[in-house]
Computed example of a mutant assay.
Amino acid sequence: MVKEYAVTSSEAENKSVVEQSLDDFRDYLEFNNMSSNTVHVYLFAVKQFLGLYHVISHDNLMLYKCYLMEHYKPQTVNLRIRALNCYTESLQLSSSKMLMIRVQQKTFLENVISQADYEYLKKCLIRSGNMLYYFVIRFMAATGVRVSELVQIKVEHVKRGYMDIYSKDNKIRRIYIPKSLRDDALKWLRQIDRVSGYVFLNRYGDPITPAGIRGQLKKFTVLYDLDPKVVYPHSFRHRFAKNFIECCGDISMLSDILGHESIETTRIYLHRSSTEQKQIVNQIVNW
């Protein structure tokens, strides 16, 4: 039986006790090397729960789970559940752990930039002389790098041919930079006299940000008449995965390159995109 844990003892003490509880949880998360974004998200979930129920009990946790399912998408529900599970674990209430809800895996990819549109965008950027963003999208589509990882790439990584990413649990993921991309990038870097440091800089000489990249890609959709639904940073990572699996077929290697914790996550790339499925159905179904 799950024992109850009261975070507040009276209304007068409510604010200070809740704040102390959140501070303790923050310390717990930081001690366990959680990222700043995870800390922020988990604290928000716990604060939301305590604002609704005050007392940690099995019944209240189940009520909170129902509340989440009524108001949020499944991915958000599971994220909040993970946060509360971590919180109860920090209080040594392991028996209070909630089960995740099942999220049905899609059998198709949505909003993935086509190879034709990718090639078209590259040509447009070359024609306009925007080599910075030519290499931004090419690096994403040729390495499978996340946009948050892209902005960390340095000239030294390009020369070496790879960049190692260290995760919070001290695992290493190696991002390979293909020879053709490396040769072209080094030639461009020599032309702009960049011999070290971050590859992708803004006009002020600071590293460009993921938000800046997203904003610029939106402008390209208008400038070059592209579908905004398929032109966003992660779309180029999808393009890499689709091309890799079609050319190589090694899903285990692809999972490692992309940094997926489970190969099941990578299996989505074995399926065609929703656009491809629609085109095939339109072509073959005539009855």
Results as ranks from 00 to 15, higher is better:
residue 75 Q to F: 09
residue 148 S to F: 01
residue 77 V to T: 08
residue 265 T to F: 01
residue 233 P to L: 01
residue 239 R to L: 14
residue 30 E to N: 05
residue 41 V to Q: 10
residue 211 A to R: 11
residue 22 L to M: 04
residue 273 S to C: 04
residue 6 A to I: 02
residue 77 V to A: 07
residue 217 L to E: 00
residue 34 M to Q: 15
residue 126 I to W: 01
residue 13 E to M: 12
residue 119 E to A: 09
residue 210 P to Q: 00
residue 49 F to P: 08
residue 220 F to P: 00
residue 21 S to A: 14
residue 89 E to Q: 13
residue 209 T to S: 09
residue 215 G to F: 00
residue 108 F to P: 03
residue 266 T to Y: 03
residue 182 R to K: 15
residue 99 L to T: 13
residue 258 L to I: 10
residue 184 D to Y: 04
residue 183 D to V: 12
residue 166 Y to P: 08
residue 182 R to M: 02
residue 246 E to A: 13
residue 169 D to F: 10
residue 283 Q to V: 13
residue 125 L to A: 10
residue 172 I to D: 04
residue 119 E to Q: 10
residue 237 R to V: 00
residue 89 E to C: 06
residue 165 I to L: 12
residue 162 Y to V: 09
residue 113 I to C: 07
residue 27 D to E: 09
residue 37 N to L: 11
residue 90 S to R: 09
residue 69 M to R: 07
residue 31 F to I: 15
residue 238 H to C: 14
residue 30 E to Q: 07
residue 267 R to K: 15
residue 35 S to I: 03
residue 132 L to F: 10
residue 43 L to D: 05
residue 272 R to W: 11
residue 62 M to A: 12
residue 255 S to L: 07
residue 130 N to R: 00
residue 244 F to A: 09
residue 52 L to H: 06
residue 41 V to F: 14
residue 199 V to Y: 00
residue 241 A to N: 03
residue 287 W to S: 15
residue 50 L to P: 09
residue 171 K to A: 08
residue 152 Q to M: 11
residue 71 H to W: 02
residue 14 N to V: 10
residue 287 W to C: 13
residue 210 P to M: 01
residue 107 T to E: 13
residue 133 Y to Q: 01
residue 196 S to G: 04
residue 10 S to V: 05
residue 247 C to D: 15
residue 61 L to Q: 03
residue 51 G to C: 05
residue 224 Y to L: 04
residue 197 G to H: 05
